[in-house]
């Protein structure tokens, strides 16, 4: 029982990342009808927002202190981060919390990147065949990836999580198990709650605001909404920006779990496409459900008890689930009829 619960929890954070990326992909597909292969690159760019933010707030001034000497007898160099000289102790706290704080940088940056991408390139591809959309966004993803590689180098850059959120939470005690029976890394819990929060925010935005209502109407019947005198294109552009923000935030918060490197976007992209299709193209709840489902299944499949019965299952579980679901339910879990079938 404990083991099952533990695996369930383990699946949640990865599932959260899948769900967030798939949600953004589905938003773009549902609004603009564009298959965006550069979406993984947006996840990666988000992660590098965190790297940049940390770099900026840890910029240091180096002063030579002649009164102190090092072990070698030379004058000691005192390095003070600028943030500390400006904000005092607050500066140290800022640096400690740099990953969650990078969200503040990531939101505007990703929004701008998303809107520029859509206006600059994607908008010319609404009416083009999906194969061409795939090719152009794939090319764009390579370009973004290479730019990041040129700036930040090819090696992963690890990001520390805040000290307060290191360690493990005793989840078992909360639900009445013996203390220490079921512990779970705190940051993963944070990631899950964070992704649940972002998902809730996106759904709330679409459900309860006028803007969201118009967007939903446009997803259902773009032409009619346009005929009513609403500039639906502009709203869809903003939705693209929003999808970029969602992917970026998923990337920011994932940095302590996986040190960001320039090609991580591609690694997540393939999986998220599987997630989107399993959930049903164009269905937002489907994307979220499939994200968590596949994340949890993956963590179950990596249990030793299961691996001993079905060797190698942990390697293929996601794809196997995708194959089974697509063969049994032709449009994925929540897919609509006629979506992307021809």
């Amino acid at each position: 029982m404990d083991a099952i619960l533990a695996q369930l929890l383990n699946g949640l954070d990865k599932g959260g990342a899948y769900a967030l990326i798939a949600l953004g992909l589905t938003l773009v597909f549902g609004t603009l009808g564009v298959v965006n292969f550069a979406h993984g690159a947006l996840f990666m760019l988000g992660a590098f927002c965190a790297v940049t933010f940390r770099y900026l707030i840890t910029l240091e001034t180096v002063t030579v202190d002649p009164t102190q000497t090092t072990a070698w007898g030379t004058a000691l160099e005192v390095r003070t981060p600028l943030a500390q000289t400006w904000f005092g102790d607050w500066g140290a706290v800022l640096i400690d919390w740099s990953v969650p704080l990078s969200i503040l940088l990531a939101i505007p940056v990703m929004l701008v990147i998303g809107i520029v991408m859509e206006r600059g390139l994607i908008k010319h591809f609404y009416k083009r065949p999906h194969a061409e959309q795939i090719l152009v966004t794939f090319g764009l993803a390579i370009v973004l990836q290479e730019i990041v590689k040129a700036i930040f180098g090819p090696n992963p850059i690890s990001q520390a999580m805040p000290t307060a959120l290191r360690g493990a939470a005793d989840v078992g005690a909360l639900i009445g198990l013996a203390p220490g029976a079921l512990t779970y890394p705190l940051w993963r819990l944070v990631y899950f709650l964070f992704s649940a929060g972002v998902i809730a925010a996106v759904f709330g935005f679409l459900r309860f605001t006028t803007f969201g209502m118009v967007v939903r109407a446009g997803m259902a019947d773009r032409e009619t909404v346009g005929l009513l005198g609403i500039n639906i294109d502009r709203r869809f552009t903003i939705m693209f920006g929003l999808a970029a923000v969602v992917a970026g935030l998923a990337g920011v918060m994932y940095t302590p779990l996986l040190p960001p490197n320039y090609h991580q976007g591609m690694d997540f992209l393939v999986l998220s496409f599987v997630v989107v299709v399993v959930g049903g193209m164009g269905s937002l709840p489907g994307a979220v459900a499939a994200g968590f489902l596949l994340g949890i299944l993956q963590s179950f499949a990596s249990m030793n008890q299961i691996k001993s019965i079905l060797p190698g299952i942990d390697q293929i579980i996601i794809y196997l689930t995708a194959v089974v679901i697509l063969l049994v339910r032709p449009r994925g879990l929540f897919g609509r009829r006629g979506m992307m079938e021809n």
């Binding site: 999906h130 299709v277 794809y319 995708a322 194959v323 697509l326 032709p330 994925g332 992307m340």
Partner: peptide
């Protein structure tokens, strides 16, 4: 299956 569902099925088999 056809369309993107076909693409994902082939992708899934290849990745497996």
């Amino acid at each position: 299956r056809s369309g993107i569902y076909f693409s994902i099925l082939t992708l899934a088999f290849a990745q497996m």
